[in-house]
């Protein structure tokens, strides 16, 4: 590339940066960059700009974002979006309430039986 090929050289900047340029074009561009201060400065600016873009910190979602999404879906679907829980999901809670009920009943019966003067049911 001669000095009149600045435009042609800058057209190759992206592919060069991406390491996506064939060996011939790479050699031609590198040769031009060595001999042309204008394009060398341009490429230095290009490198600096893309380095800065790539160096942007990775932003993370704010706390409570995930909960907010779930809430929004519930609200938007008026609570109908998610499938009704299957029996398997409910069993532990229902089993727990059954056990608790049984326990309360047992305590009640024991207390009744242990009271003096209770009437024995034949």
């Amino acid at each position: 590339m001669s000095d009149v090929d600045h435009a042609q050289a800058s057209e190759l900047f992206s592919s060069y940066w991406d390491e996506d340029l064939g060996p011939d074009d790479t050699a031609r561009l590198e040769e031009h960059l060595r001999s042309c201060i204008v394009c060398r400065r341009e490429y230095a600016d290009f490198e600096k700009a893309l380095g800065a873009v790539g160096g942007l910190p990775h932003e993370i979602a704010p706390p409570g974002f995930a909960a907010g999404v779930v809430k929004r879906v519930h609200k938007r679907s008026r609570g109908r979006f998610f499938a009704t829980r299957g029996m398997l999901d409910r069993v532990p809670y229902e089993l727990f309430s059954l056990v608790m009920l049984g326990l309360i009943l047992a305590i009640y019966v024991i207390l009744q039986l242990s009271q003096p003067g209770h009437v024995k049911i034949p």
């Binding site: 800058s10 900047f13 992206s14 940066w17 341009e42 600016d45 290009f46 600096k48 700009a49 893309l50 800065a52 873009v53």
Partner: peptide
């Protein structure tokens, strides 16, 4: 990218 380069330069 060239636009970014020009702005940042």
């Amino acid at each position: 990218r060239m636009a970014l380069k020009d702005y940042l330069a």
